[in-house]
Structure formats: structure tokens, C-alpha cells
Measured scan of single mutants.
Amino acid sequence: KSSGQLMAEWGLDDVDYLFSEEDYHTLTNYKAFSQFLRPLIAKKNPKIPMSKMMTVLGAKWREFSANNP
């Protein structure tokens, strides 16, 4: 499932962030990516359980990696 599908299924607000060329150069591993995106997700979904946060971050990382030029 996509991150958007997961968040909709769980009734969470998705984070629409348009990644720049620079993001693809600086966010080169999962740790850097999650440190960048986790606060954005948490801000829109302050009560998100950690298990769902990790699942969403994993899905967003897969999508980000697939779109990386």
C-alpha cells in the first residue's frame, strides 16, 4: 500500500511535501529521511502511534527511493 492509502485507512492527515533535487542529494539514507519527515508527520498527527509512524515512514521512504532520479 502507498503511504497515502495507509494514512487514509487510519484516518490520519497525509503530509504533502514536494521533494527538491537537493533533498534527493542530502536525504541519502533512511535515518536522514526519517529525521527529516517524522516531525512533519507528527505535527499534522500528534497522536499517531509509533507503530503506525514507522509503517508510514517506511512506505514514504520506498516511494522517495523509487522517485529518486
Rank of each mutant, 00 (worst) to 15 (best):
D23N: 08
K52C: 02
F19I: 05
D13R: 14
P49R: 04
E22G: 10
L12G: 03
S20G: 13
K47F: 14
S34G: 06
F36S: 11
Y24G: 04
K31H: 12
S65Y: 10
Y24E: 04
D14A: 02
E22M: 07
F19P: 11
Q5V: 08
K31S: 11
L40H: 08
F33W: 01
M50A: 15
V15P: 06
S3H: 02
N68S: 10
Q35C: 12
D16M: 03
Q5I: 10
M53T: 06
S20M: 07
V15N: 02
Q5C: 08
G4K: 14
M53H: 00
W10M: 12
K1M: 07
A8S: 14
F19V: 04
E9G: 08
A8T: 14
A8N: 13
L12M: 14
V15H: 05
W10Q: 07
L27K: 00
K52E: 13
M7A: 06
T26N: 13
T55A: 13
D16Q: 06
L12R: 01
Q5K: 12
D14V: 00
F33D: 00
I48R: 01
I41T: 12
K31P: 10
N45Y: 06
L12E: 02
Q35Y: 10
L27R: 00
V15R: 00
D23I: 05
L12I: 15
D13K: 15
S20Y: 05
K31F: 10
S3P: 02
L12V: 08
T28G: 09
K60Y: 06
S51P: 03
A32D: 15
D16L: 03
M7Q: 02
D16F: 03
K1D: 06
D14G: 03
Q35I: 09
Y17E: 06
G58Q: 08
K52R: 13
D13I: 15
D13Y: 13
S51G: 13
N45M: 02
K43V: 04
A8F: 12
A42S: 04
D13S: 15
A32W: 02
Y17K: 05
F64T: 01
S20I: 10
M54T: 01
A32P: 00
F33A: 00
Q5A: 12
A8P: 05
Q5L: 10
K1Y: 08
A32M: 10
D23F: 00
L27P: 00
L6A: 04
T26Q: 12
D23Q: 08
S20H: 05
E9R: 10
Y24M: 09
H25T: 14
Q5G: 05
M7C: 07
Q5R: 08
D14T: 01
R38V: 01
S2V: 06
V15K: 01
E22T: 11
Q5N: 09
K31G: 08
S2P: 02
H25V: 13
F33Q: 03
E21D: 12
L57G: 00
G11W: 01
L12T: 03
V15W: 03
Q5Y: 04
F64E: 01
